[in-house]
Simulated scan of single mutants.
Amino acid sequence: MRPFLYYTALLLLGFAWYHVGQRLLRKGYRDEKGELTPGLAGPAGLLMAAAVACFLFFFMLRALVRGEVPCVGKGCAGQLYTLAASPGDYWANVLFLLWCVLALGYAVYVTLRIWFRA
């Protein structure tokens, strides 16, 4: 039951994140007050989100190639999940890394689309 709730929460959060970005993209160049439509991140936030997304993407690729991933959570720090010994926990951590990469990448995409509108 716990994995079902975990994956459902990831999907619902991803769906909400997607709709927030789409709502910002549907807005015009300026909002109701006449001010420029802000992106999901400012300049420093954009650089930080891009850097963290690249780091997590590398970390995820490394986990896929090596077949082992350290636990991502706080409660299991220092624990190493391998594909052979515990495939459920391994794929849960890899999926969480993928979700973080996609969420941060989408934030960067929406912000850049808003900034470079014609």
Results as ranks from 00 to 15, higher is better:
residue 1 M to Y: 11
residue 3 P to V: 05
residue 5 L to E: 06
residue 5 L to A: 13
residue 6 Y to H: 12
residue 6 Y to C: 10
residue 6 Y to K: 09
residue 10 L to T: 12
residue 11 L to I: 14
residue 12 L to W: 13
residue 14 G to H: 07
residue 18 Y to E: 07
residue 21 G to D: 03
residue 22 Q to I: 07
residue 23 R to N: 13
residue 23 R to D: 14
residue 27 K to E: 11
residue 28 G to V: 02
residue 28 G to D: 06
residue 33 K to L: 15
residue 34 G to W: 00
residue 38 P to K: 02
residue 39 G to M: 01
residue 40 L to E: 00
residue 41 A to H: 07
residue 43 P to Q: 08
residue 43 P to F: 08
residue 46 L to R: 01
residue 46 L to W: 00
residue 48 M to L: 15
residue 48 M to R: 10
residue 48 M to D: 01
residue 49 A to Y: 12
residue 50 A to Y: 01
residue 51 A to L: 14
residue 53 A to L: 04
residue 55 F to Y: 05
residue 55 F to S: 02
residue 56 L to Q: 08
residue 57 F to L: 08
residue 59 F to A: 13
residue 59 F to D: 14
residue 63 A to V: 09
residue 65 V to Q: 10
residue 65 V to L: 14
residue 65 V to E: 10
residue 67 G to C: 03
residue 68 E to T: 04
residue 69 V to S: 06
residue 70 P to D: 05
residue 71 C to V: 02
residue 71 C to G: 03
residue 73 G to V: 12
residue 74 K to N: 10
residue 75 G to A: 11
residue 76 C to K: 04
residue 76 C to Q: 07
residue 76 C to E: 07
residue 80 L to A: 00
residue 81 Y to E: 08
residue 81 Y to V: 05
residue 84 A to Q: 09
residue 85 A to D: 15
residue 88 G to P: 00
residue 90 Y to R: 00
residue 91 W to N: 02
residue 92 A to K: 04
residue 94 V to R: 01
residue 94 V to I: 10
residue 94 V to G: 02
residue 95 L to M: 14
residue 98 L to K: 02
residue 98 L to M: 08
residue 99 W to M: 15
residue 102 L to R: 09
residue 103 A to M: 14
residue 103 A to W: 12
residue 103 A to F: 15
residue 106 Y to A: 15
residue 109 Y to C: 12
residue 110 V to Q: 03
residue 111 T to R: 01
residue 117 R to A: 02
residue 118 A to Y: 08
residue 118 A to E: 09
